[in-house]
Amino acid sequence: MGLFDKLAAWLGLKKEVNVLCLGLDNSGKTTIINQLKPSNAQAQDIVPTIGFSIEKFKTSSLSFTVFDMSGQGRYRNLWEHYYKEGQAIIFVIDSADKLRMVVAKEELDTLLNHPDIKHRRIPILFFANKMDVRDALSSVKVSQLLCLENIKDKPWHICATNALKGEGLQEGVDWLQDQIKTMKT
C-alpha cells in the first residue's frame, strides 16, 4: 500500500473502483449486490432488472460503484457500452441452469473478445451462484463448461455462492479487492 493509499484510508477516503456485474438474467446479480450492501440499505424485494442500475458498497479499503446490468436477452447489447469504464468484472452464473450454460459461455466469449476488454488485464470474478439448489453444478464443473482455463491474460477467480444467504460472497470480494490494489494505478 502506497503512502497516499494509507493516508486516504486513514482519512476515510477510499479508492473508487467501477465494477461491471454481468451474467444471464435470473443468475442472481442483483441479489448478490444487494447482499454486499450494508444491511440497512438492502432491498427486500428483488425484481428483474430493467436496463441497468448503479449500486455502491464499500469494503475495508475500496469504494465500489457497481453497474448491475440486466441479463435479459434484449438488454445484453447494453453491456458493451460500459466496458471502457469498468475496472473489474463480476460475472454471475446460475449453476442450476444447465441448459443455458452454453448461452453464458457464448456471452462470456463475446465479452472476452470485445476490443475494450481483449487486451486489458482486467480482473474477472466468477460467482457460480445458487449452489444451494439441488442438482446445481459445482464451481469446478462450471469453470470447465465455460472453459475458464483458457483465460490466460487476465486474473480470474471462481467461487460457489448462495446469494440468498450470502455464502461465498466475501471470499470473492476479498480476492477482487486484492487484485484491484495490486493493479498499477
Binding site: L24, D25, N26, G73, D97, L99, R100, V103
Partner: peptide, 10 residues
Amino acid sequence: VCFGRYGRED
C-alpha cells in the same frame, strides 16, 4: 420439431 420458449430462453 418445436420452437419456442424453453426454460428462460425464448
